[in-house]
Amino acid sequence: MQATKQEKIDLYRLMYRIRTFEEQSFVSFNKGLTHGVLHLCIGQEASAAGCIYDLKKEDYLATTHRGHGHVIAKGADLKRMFAELLGKETGYCRGRGGSMHIADMEIGILGANGIVGGGVPIAVGAGLAIKYRGLNRVALSFFGDATLNTGAFHEAANLASIWKLPVVFVCENNLYGISVSIKKACALDTLANRSAGYNIPGVCVDGNDVMAVREAANEAVERARNGEGPSFIECQTYRHMGHFTADDGKYRPDEEVKYWKEERDPIKNFAKQLLDDKEVTQGGLDSIHDEVKTEIEQAFKFAEESEPGHVDDLLEGVYNQPAANQ
């Protein structure tokens, strides 16, 4: 698949934006500014960027506890994201949801999710609505390797397949479910092979190669839009940090972590490729870095300066009050 120079720069910027957001989130966690732990996706930016870059605003996605990257790639407002992490009224969920529940219904983000496997049937339901309403949209379901062993994934994948729903299942295989190696949790060598059991075409890609991810995702999205049903993509990747911000990830061998950070970093490697191909100069990259850092600083400042989530109308938010015709 041919990509324009501008597209490559956009993808780089997007991955860099995700990483910088996560780094700033970690800083704010360490300062005690966030109200809970965070599941950072540093190291996994390519799968978010590659899968989502070409989606349209009206397409849907449902993601996981490690969902900041997907949400940013879909176009979420960084100010409202930071504000949510800081529990502010201006946050996406007014401080009611936090990191694991960021959603933006206006741009098809049907929520991150705190339950492993919980978002998969929801994405399939969005796929059902797309087909029912005759829309030319697609629903992406992001989940980690550990989700493959939940019943909800199995039920939802089967449903998507029998009804030929426009869904793309994206399994971000970062090799660990918290501390447990996928080798101990799953008998498959290649997780994408699981999809054969549902008669869903599956591919395994280098999840840290943003162009490879993009190509696989766009093929799957095209199938979905053409009414050919769901696809499954395994993105092999790695999280640089622990499962959450309070986890130092010591259950992983040092050399393994070092390998993924130094040899397989999706951003570093893509920068090198862009420089080698003379698509961009170091000066060009530096100015992207500066622009993104400014954007992140401003977004975080907005969050810090916002007022805390309101307490007085908490109970009014349990139900949608103006129930129709009642």
């Binding site: 049907l110 929801i122 399939v124 339901g125 059902l128 609505a129 309403r133 629903a139 939802a156």
Partner: peptide, 11 residues
């Protein structure tokens, strides 16, 4: 779950 997803997407 699919019912919920479909509700979020207009049904």
């Amino acid at each position: 779950g699919a019912a919920l997803g479909s509700a979020l997407a207009g049904l």
